[in-house]
Design a protein around this nucleic acid. Structure first.
Length: 864
RNA sequence: GCGGAAGUGGUGAAAUGGCAAACACACCAGCCUUAGGAGCUGGCGCCCAAAAGGCUUGCGGGUUCAAGUCCCGCCUUCCGCACCA
């Protein structure tokens, strides 16, 4: 007995080492077939990792999910593309260089080698032949190529703009990299604003399409679609010009004419046509219907008009500067929303184009220059913010909307934001808000003082980074010819390798004369290269296309191959990429489509966002000190146990609470599988083939459970993906087999049944525990890879129960459970229910008013 | 404030509107032993000494023969967005 135990002892270290070596020697094992294959294709992709040095548990979970899916699809006969690569440019490599004087390239490539070994140790089924490493010229040259294409199309352009500057990184951050006013990498470092000339991608040109496209992405989580919708931030409204009341130069005296004109024109519709020479203040509003209630105009401190007001008014300038400073510090603190409203009256007036009414012009610290027009009309009666401001500064509050709901005294309310009918609005009185909006827009358009307008919160994508470790932007600046793109045949613009990384500001490439100094491709004269590099989100915006044709040195990829594989059938990754990476990727796909490179409008058919890995109530992180190392788990319990636990502990879309005892439990389970399968595997080959006799007794019981399990798991893979319950179902099956062990030993169960049981059990486990199943599959005498074996089919006749348990309720309360034949009809079920002793006792002397029978489900007696 | 998700035993969790707590972990009792991070048997939501019985899915209503599940209102937690005009 002891010897037997020892012999059947599960030793993952030995098994996993053996198979890891074999798999490494077989590069075709996980390779996709060419695009000419006649199998149905399946492209399953997990987000590529940044090569930080070590995989963490979040990676293990992410890739365990994807690998399970890939393996199951292989077994179902699909041509599966399951690639992996490295998001290898980025700041940590430079930080590491600073810290220990390792060149970024060396540091990065070493990390990649380490992490690749970890992947292999975990048994991940990636096709390494298509590996993509974004920091290599073979890849980033195509970033440059795309940049040039986008430049030609006007989609890449240069502009001076305020940028988020992280003093710690000494670089510009994208808006998305600013979290609560701080750098995304340095949570305690406040981001500053600086002016720099930057390269931008015109993602706003696709804003409308990116938004509309979300409607088609039914395979994406609603949460992600909502986040993108909010990010794009489409807002329908009206732009309207208030005319600037002119003053006599130098006198400060108002232009009486303007005022008079305006007053006279009240209620007419053509006053805007009068003077295109008149200065205007354009405001954006979603509530043009309230414009007759506008009692001031509010400008952002940075509004260009403000500078003209302050030019001759030092006192005003000082006040505006103060407002600007308040806004800046609030922005830097990340709590713009909490800023205390301050403002200053400019002493100037605007003219309402509809009424000719004079309204004062203010500058306010809560008005943002980078949204809308940087100017608003203020309607205190119908907007909370305007109400607050007007109350504070004693500006008139004039109600122009009468709410539809009666009863409430409108005058008692601070402000009314609800829908209603216009009042105090001259000829527009009586119109509903919607009617008024339409009408007022028409009037503005006709009068050329405004128009219907859709604006977006989405900004163009600033891609310049003053960093070394990124793709050089392929542009040249010539004193004579200006901005000149690097000719395509001179690509790639290589990133120089000999460079010292320092923490000094600006772009490190600017300190490499051999790089900077070049000749102008147009005139041949001396010129300088762009020294900024590209945002690393550029790299990850199209890498998944490169996988399909990773070795192509003539083009980023062959469109014909991409056409076969795209869109990606299933993309899996963390929800933290819901906006940045996933919106840029969608943008890039649309650009490539318009360049004629791809046919698909969207890159990803189905998206799955897995939950975080939590320990002791917090996300695993170094700062929290609750990190569990995959290497350690693998060393202790084996890769199969670590992987399977990460699937078993929670459904994949939820956060997972890491408990090491749970890993040990899964390991014990696998040990039982190993023991049972090893013990009975000698019986399996002999029993291969159809089951001749009709199974009865224990055989039937086990086969029934087996086929129910096959059905459950097969169905679950179709989209529900509750792998935790799939693993639980396999555990139940194994529990039943184990409970029948003495019967198996006694020879009462025919060998074809034993054979079917163990073959299918191993096949069912194949997506979850690749090492163990490889070993057991071999033990069964099988030669080929288990991935090439077909996924088991559930036989409905075998899965079917012939007797089922039916709960009997009286007035909705459970009183008994009876057994009836599975095919019992309503009549039979009712009769059986009424025949039950407990039921009889309960209904004795009472009237059964109604009997509800749900065939195969339940019986409920309504009794009085 | 707006939007999204969630709330079930000591813990992770399960449950096409039809027996709440499957499967595990932890714990308790026992067995075995070459004493192990091993294996086996049993117990394990709450109330009641036990049985019988009753109660139980954040709170309050509702729909239904029947609600963890659907609807309405509220509370709490997490995530995203936020004076966005």
């Amino acid at each position: 007995m002891a010897d037997e135990r020892e012999q059947l002892r599960y030793d993952p270290a030995t098994i996993e080492k053996k198979w890891q070596e074999r798999w490494a020697a077989d590069p075709r094992l996980y390779a996709a077939e060419p695009a000419t294959s006649d199998k149905p294709k399946y492209y399953v992709l997990e987000m590529l990792p940044y090569p930080s040095g070590q995989l963490h548990m979040g990676h293990v979970r992410n890739y365990a999910i994807g690998d399970a899916l890939a393996r199951q699809m292989w077994m179902r006969g699909y041509n599966v593309l399951h690639p992996m690569g490295w998001d290898a440019f980025g700041l940590p490599a430079e930080n590491a260089a600073l810290k220990n004087h390792t060149p970024p390239r060396e540091w990065t490539l070493r990390n990649i080698a380490d992490m690749k070994r970890q992947f292999e140790r975990l048994g991940m089924g990636f096709d390494w032949a298509t590996e993509v490493t974004t920091c290599l010229p073979e890849y980033y040259r195509w970033n440059q190529w795309f940049f040039l294409r986008m430049y030609e199309k006007g989609l890449a352009y240069r502009k001076k703009s305020k940028v988020n500057w992280c003093p710690e990184c000494a670089t510009v951050l994208a808006n998305e990299q600013v979290i609560d006013g701080c750098c995304w990498r340095h949570e305690d470092t406040k981001v500053e604003q600086r002016d720099l000339v930057q390269w931008f991608f015109r993602i706003t040109a696709y804003a409308e399409e990116l938004l509309r496209g979300l409607e088609t992405l039914e395979g994406w989580p609603e949460k992600v679609r909502t986040m993108q919708r909010n990010w794009i931030g489409r807002s329908e409204g009206t732009e309207v010009d208030f005319f600037l009341e002119e003053i006599q130069p130098g006198t400060g005296i108002r232009d009486q004419e303007t005022e008079k004109q305006g007053t006279e024109k009240q209620g007419t519709t053509d006053q805007g046509a009068k003077g295109p020479e008149r200065q205007r203040i354009r405001v954006f509003t979603t509530r043009v219907d309230t414009i007759l209630g506008a009692t001031s105009v509010q400008l952002a401190p940075e509004h260009p008009l403000v500078a003209t007001f302050t030019a001759e008014d030092a006192e005003l300038k000082a006040k505006v500067d103060e407002l600007l400073e308040q806004q800046r510090s609030a922005r830097e603190a990340g709590d713009l929303g909490a800023i205390e409203k301050h403002g200053v009256a400019t002493g100037r007036f605007g003219i309402n184009p509809y009424s000719g009414e004079r309204v004062p012009i203010w500058v306010a610290n809560y008005i943002l220059m980078d949204y809308g027009t940087g100017a608003i009309m203020s309607v205190p009666a119908h907007d909370e913010r305007d109400f607050e401001f007007a109350t504070k500064y004693g500006i008139e509050i004039r109600q122009v909307i009468k709410p539809l709901t009666e009863g409430e005294d409108a005058n008692a309310l601070p402000f009314i934001s609800e829908d209603g009918v216009l009042v105090n609005s001259g000829e527009y009185d009586g119109l509903t808000c919607a009617q008024a909006q339409k009408k007022l827009q028409e009037v503005a358009t006709r009068g050329q003082f405004g128009e219907e307008k859709v604006i977006f919160r989405l900004k163009d994508w600033g891609v310049s980074r003053q960093r070394y470790w990124g793709t050089p932007i392929p542009m040249i600046y010539c004193e004579r010819d200006g901005v000149v793109p690097v000719p395509e045949d001179q690509l790639p613009v290589l990133l120089p390798e000999k460079i010292e990384i320092t923490q000094q500001g600006g772009s490190p490439l600017a300190r490499v004369p051999e790089f900077v100094n070049t000749i102008c491709p147009k005139c041949g004269g001396p010129a300088k290269r762009e020294t900024d590099t590209m945002d690393t989100f550029v790299d990850s915006s199209w890498y998944f296309y490169r996988y399909t044709d990773a070795k192509n040195d003539k083009a980023p990829f062959d469109p014909a191959i991409v056409k076969y594989w795209f869109p990606i059938d299933q993309y899996i990754g963390g929800v933290e990429h819901a906006i940045l990476h996933l919106i840029y990727s969608r943008f890039w796909t649309k650009v490539m489509r318009d360049l004629g490179l791809v046919k698909n409008d969207e890159p990803v058919e189905r998206l799955f966002t897995q939950g975080m890995v939590i320990k002791d109530g917090a996300k695993m992180s170094k700062s929290k000190g609750n990190v569990v190392s995959p290497d350690e788990m693998v060393a202790r319990y084996g890769a199969d146990s670590a992987r399977m636990y990460s699937l078993f502990a929670a459904p994949p879309d939820r956060d997972l609470d890491w408990q090491e005892d749970g890993v040990a439990g899964v390991s014990r389970f696998l040990a039982r599988v190993y023991r049972l399968a090893t013990k009975y595997s000698p019986l399996v080959p002999a029993g291969k083939g159809p089951i001749a006799e009709v199974p009865v007794g224990t055989s039937l019981k086990l086969l029934r459970k087996l086929h129910q399990t096959i059905a459950k798991i097969t169905q679950d893979f179709e989209g529900r993906w509750h792998f935790n319950t799939d693993v639980a179902a396999i555990m139940e099956l194994v529990n039943e087999i184990q409970a029948a062990e003495s019967e198996l030993d006694s020879g009462n169960v025919p060998s074809p049944v034993i054979s079917a049981l163990f073959r299918d059990l191993i096949l069912l486990l194949a997506p979850f525990a690749p090492f163990l199943v490889a070993e057991l599959w071999e033990q069964l005498g099988e030669q080929g890879a288990i991935l090439r074996a077909p996924w088991p089919k559930s036989d409905p006749l075998l899965a079917r129960e012939d007797e089922i348990e039916i709960p009997i309720q009286i007035n909705g309360k459970l009183v008994a459970v009876i057994r009836v034949p599975a095919d019992a009809d309503a009549k039979a079920m009712e009769a059986a229910a009424l025949a039950d002793e407990k039921v009889k006792a309960r209904i004795a002397g009472k009237a059964v008013i109604k009997v509800i029978v749900v065939t195969g489900r339940a019986v409920n007696l309504v009794v009085k």
